[in-house]
């Protein structure tokens, strides 16, 4: 009996590892190639050269000579950081408010807000563009931020988290004479740090990657962001593949750092939001 079981399980194990190795390879290879191509020149890349080369500095010089990589990086960081901070603040405040001050009317409001998840950004693009150009918000950080500062996804996530926050703490703090807003700032935010971390990753990633809205609202060259810069190489006459891949690599590094330092809280926060 025991012998038979071993015979059945072992080939399955090996098959499982083979599948996982194959999938890992397919996942990692384009990634490896992105970094490797950033160190090669166009001729080698076209010839199918896979190993890293020694053109990294030259590619870097090509980028810095155009003078756009620095500002694009700065704009991307600034936009994403500002959006993440304000979005976390406003959405968590709402999520907290829906739970701690629960009543029938607020539940109805939440129900209506949930409907906005059905509204695709592509559908509101044109009205928002017209509204923002009338309000003089073109080419401003505020214009970039406003449509995604308050999202139902985040409010929902914080609402779920707030349900695990003990009401007794709130009541005790009230008796001690703490104002409602102070209770939120001094008690809720520190306790909910894992949820904030997960929400920050999701928001930062979306802001960092966003392409369509910046393409519409941030049309001036001074407001250039990394995705738009990377995308702009597409229509060029002579494509410098090495330089392109260096831009792509540079715009990926911050996300990599964030993921691997905060991976645990990302999964935790996601778990909390789907429960």
């Amino acid at each position: 009996m025991k012998k038979k079981r071993r015979l059945v399980i072992r080939p399955l194990r090996i098959l499982k590892h083979l599948i996982l190795i194959l999938v890992s390879f397919v996942s990692a290879f384009p990634f490896y190639w992105m970094v490797s191509a950033a160190t090669n020149n166009t001729a080698d890349i076209i010839l199918g050269h896979i190993a890293p080369g020694n053109y990294l500095l030259q590619n870097w010089r090509t980028l810095t000579e155009s003078g756009r990589i620095g500002p694009a990086f700065y704009n991307s960081v600034r936009n994403a950081v500002l959006l993440t901070i304000s979005s976390l603040f406003i959405s968590s405040m709402a999520g907290y408010g829906f739970v701690i001050f629960r009543d029938k009317w607020k539940n109805r409001v939440m129900g209506i807000l949930m409907l906005s998840m059905m509204i695709p950004p592509a559908a509101t693009l044109i009205p928002l563009f017209r509204m923002f150009s009338q309000m003089g918000l073109m080419n401003t950080v505020l214009g970039f931020m406003l449509p995604s500062v308050a999202t139902v996804f985040l409010i929902f996530m914080f609402r779920q988290a707030a349900q695990t926050f003990p009401q007794e703490i709130v009541q005790a703090a009230r008796i001690d004479g703490l104002g409602e807003f102070r209770i939120f700032l001094k008690m809720f935010i520190p306790v909910m740090r894992p949820t904030y971390a997960a929400a920050a990753i999701v928001t930062f990633m979306n802001a960092w990657n966003s392409y369509l809205w910046p393409l519409v609202i941030l049309q001036s060259p001074e407001q250039l962001t990394l995705p738009i810069y990377a995308g702009s190489f597409r229509g060029g006459y002579v494509l410098d593949y090495g330089a392109i891949m260096l831009v792509v690599t540079i715009s990926t590094i911050p996300m990599l750092i964030i993921f691997f330092t905060l991976q645990k809280s990302f999964v935790q926060g996601i778990l909390g939001s789907v429960k």
Binding site: I228, G231, R234, V248, M255
Partner: peptide, 11 residues
Amino acid sequence: VATSLVSCSMI
């Protein structure tokens, strides 16, 4: 997941 949609499209 670490690559943006633009980056992965370029790759």
